[in-house]
């Protein structure tokens, strides 16, 4: 899972004070976890990662190949290029790399956040994310 609304709210509220970085941790027993990650990266290759990212979160769990191609069309991607990327597992390298890192870090849940390196596990509420971010911002002020 990804923490859609809470994280969106954080980004909206804190603007340039925060940087959000996405890493992929597809659960191996979820059929569409990996192909969705491929879709996100295929969109990224065409400069529309965040559009696809938001759409995947909202549309989840409707993440089968046909649906993904539909989303690509919806956000104005070159659909042929997108489909080729998906089928060729063009971005498997990045996914594998992130997955390996997640396993090294012993992560067992998604989403897992690292806020200035501090681990926060699960779909925590906006208020909790905000609390940690405020602590980090205050620490930086000193």
């Amino acid at each position: 899972m990804a923490a859609g609304p809470a994280v969106e709210k954080i980004v909206k509220e804190y603007g340039n004070k925060v940087r959000l970085v996405i890493k992929f941790y597809p659960y191996k027993y979820r059929d569409f976890a990996r192909i969705s990650a491929e879709a996100a990266l295929a969109a990224s290759d065409q400069g529309k990662f965040w559009e696809m990212h938001g759409l995947l979160i909202r549309k989840s769990p409707q993440l089968d190949r046909s649906s993904l191609i539909g989303y690509a069309k919806q956000i104005g991607l070159d659909v042929q290029k997108f489909t080729l990327s998906l089928d060729a597992h063009k971005n498997a390298g990045i996914i594998e790399r992130d997955l390996k890192l997640a396993l090294e870090l012993d992560l067992f849940n998604t989403p897992t956040f690292f806020i200035n390196g501090r681990k926060v596990i699960g779909n925590v509420p906006f208020a909790y994310l905000k609390k940690i971010i405020e602590e980090e911002l205050n620490a930086k002020k000193k």
């Binding site: 940087r19 941790y25 965040w50 994310l129």
Partner: peptide, 19 residues
């Protein structure tokens, strides 16, 4: 994939599974 300034005061890394 990254959103926001490289030198932002707070960096949030999110490990996700879309499904």
């Amino acid at each position: 994939p990254s959103l926001g300034p490289q030198d932002a005061l707070v960096t949030i890394v999110e490990f996700i599974d879309y499904q």
